[in-house]
Design a protein around this nucleic acid. Structure first.
Lengths: 118, 118
DNA sequence: CAGAATCCAACCGGATACTG
DNA sequence: CAGTATCCGGTTGGATTCTG
């Protein structure tokens, strides 16, 4: 899913991936297509969830992966990380507007898959 | 992107991936999220293209990958393989209705990515 | 509780060479 | 032309352990 970074003659970075110009589709895939990503977003869709709860909900995954994907999603503005200063600390993750917009796409994908079910 | 297959108590196969029930989203991602997949679909979107031409259009990829993805896309009914019996043989790939529907989703993804450009 | 660090096996994908 | 076969290094991701 990674597109290779090249440096053009003017020293600027560009993404070569076979699309016309730096391709937004591949970029989007890199954000939404990662493993467990859809699941995580899905579980946050209507209410905030705490880290360990989330990790437990995503059966089959490990805390390592959930953590890594959460960080990635946060970096791209799809989710928000909130620390509640209790003892021990609680951390809850919630979805942002951008994340909600992504959910819409995932739902389209779901419909598409189901319509032509094999 | 592979979801693990499990057998439930009634002997049916199910996909455990953290979604509710066998998850169409992950299935869809497995079809559209593969490397070079979007590029291939994109280049076939308005006209059939022959194998070597396609491989050349997808800069950065190898014939191996294009071949593999084409087979995958064909198996899932997104593209059609047509052999023209000349000498030497020509093989052209074209998009199906289902493939066109997928293009629609990819365009949504593109718009989503661009709207919140980082 | 909420993670980070480490280890390692499995898979992925690029390069190259070969076939009908 | 339209692929397949083989090799192989890099990345992925699961298991486990450790920390504040």
């Amino acid at each position: 899913m990674d597109a290779r970074i090249e440096i053009d003659s003017k020293g600027r970075k560009s993404v070569r991936d076979g699309c016309d110009e730096p391709c937004a589709i591949e970029q989007g895939m890199a954000i939404l297509g990662g493993k467990w990503t859809a699941s995580i977003l899905w579980h946050l869709r209507d209410e905030p969830v705490r880290f360990n709860d989330l990790a437990r909900m995503i059966s089959g995954s490990s805390k390592k992966m959930v953590s890594e994907r959460l960080r990635h999603l946060e970096a791209h503005g799809l989710i928000r990380r909130t620390v509640i200063e209790t003892k021990p600390v609680a951390v809850s993750y919630s979805i942002t507007d951008r994340g909600q917009a992504a959910i819409g796409i995932l739902e389209e994908l779901q419909r598409w898959t189901e319509q032509h079910a094999g």
